[in-house]
Design a protein around this nucleic acid. Structure first.
Lengths: 203, 203
DNA sequence: CGTGTCATGTAATCAGTTACATGATTCA
DNA sequence: TGAATCATGTAACTGATTACATGACACG
């Protein structure tokens, strides 16, 4: 059995905030979940139709002359039930595919400068991220103190904060570690002849 | 322009360790890069043919009667050059799609028990991970102290260590935070209308 | 002789992004 | 009027996994 589709649950979840159009949903992804989830229009619109077809949401064409015409979807009880069911299922661990780590793993074939730059770029990235998270924390605590969702959002925020701080530390410690590699080890060796034995293991 | 294919570079990178078959490469992914990269046969075999077709690797059918027949690919200078070129390019940040965070983000619609269980499962997961990383560190320092790749592998390992420890802490602090939510906030409220404010906020 | 591992591959399917097409409305 | 935004969608493409098919050899 292949992994069940998660786009549907992301959409159902966002619709708990109230009826919305596909366009609204896209903005919600950008605004709210962006750090751990996003969906493209190519996923959103077809899935919205599917969900309505399954009776999980109700779609109504709004032709209000006051506003622009759009299709607004609202969560039905059946949709809420399906969403709750999914919430209770164990979360599948994400498969990480980390390009930065791959580059550093093979760093011997690169140059000290390049490796250093990768880490500096990562450092900058995590610095900005940590800062954004801290700002978000302030806003969440100020503006949403009455919101029943607030504690949950603080939890997801905390994930980002802990992670970005930890990886910031990692950048610093790694920059030091790579600096300490003796030059005869950093040389990017063009040949692939050496010993042929696979890494790890050995004697 | 779509993101360039990274499978090719993963394969080229692994071939820096020496000539290998598709089967060997798959085992290498499983054994060495597993925590931040993996590829399935469905990606590996077609890409190996492609790389050979582009002249980046040499593929030789080995029909050694001593061993089983297999196709062994080796890195050519052109392949090494292409790999080096890629190493110097900035690493694209990975897009995180974190199911656990989505479930917790919408945790209000779940139950305290379920949220707690998600965090406990994550806690167990990261505990095991941190332990494996620590074991790996010992092995890396014992067995590979002469390996010119060792410092780079320690860097990638450090990423996993810092991250898993940080997220372990996050699990603990989040379990506490969710425990402190007053019961009238945890109730999975079916309606989205409320705002019947509880008298005098703050805790 | 049958199970497990080595070994290579493909087809079906699913997931996901990008680019494009269209058109209405708002606002400077 | 022309640019920005609102709004909906689809087609083409890439990426990736899963399941399957095949067969050889090893080991008990």
């Amino acid at each position: 059995m292949p992994a069940p589709n998660k786009t549907r649950f992301a959409l159902l979840g966002l619709l708990t905030f109230g009826p919305m159009s596909g366009y609204d949903l896209k903005r919600m992804f950008e605004k709210s979940l962006n750090y751990f989830w996003n969906e493209s229009y190519g996923q959103i619109y077809p899935m919205l139709k599917k969900l309505a077809g399954e009776g999980l949401t109700g779609g109504k064409r709004e032709s209000d002359p006051e506003s622009r015409s759009r299709t607004v979807y609202s969560l039905k009880d059946e949709g809420m039930a399906a969403f709750r069911e999914w919430l209770a299922l164990p979360a599948e661990p994400m498969r990480d595919r980390n390009e930065l780590l791959m580059k550093l793993f093979f760093g011997r074939h690169s140059s000290p400068d390049i490796n250093r730059n990768h880490l500096l770029a990562a450092r900058e990235y995590y610095t900005g991220l940590a800062q954004k998270f801290d700002e978000l924390e302030i806003r969440l605590k100020e503006d949403c103190s009455d919101d029943p969702d607030q504690p949950y959002w603080l939890v997801t925020l905390g994930y980002g904060q802990n992670q970005s701080r930890a990886l910031l530390q990692w950048c610093d410690q790694s920059l030091i570690a790579l600096d300490e590699i003796p030059a005869d080890r950093t040389s990017s060796d063009n040949s692939k002849n050496e010993t042929n034995e696979p890494p790890s293991g050995g004697r």
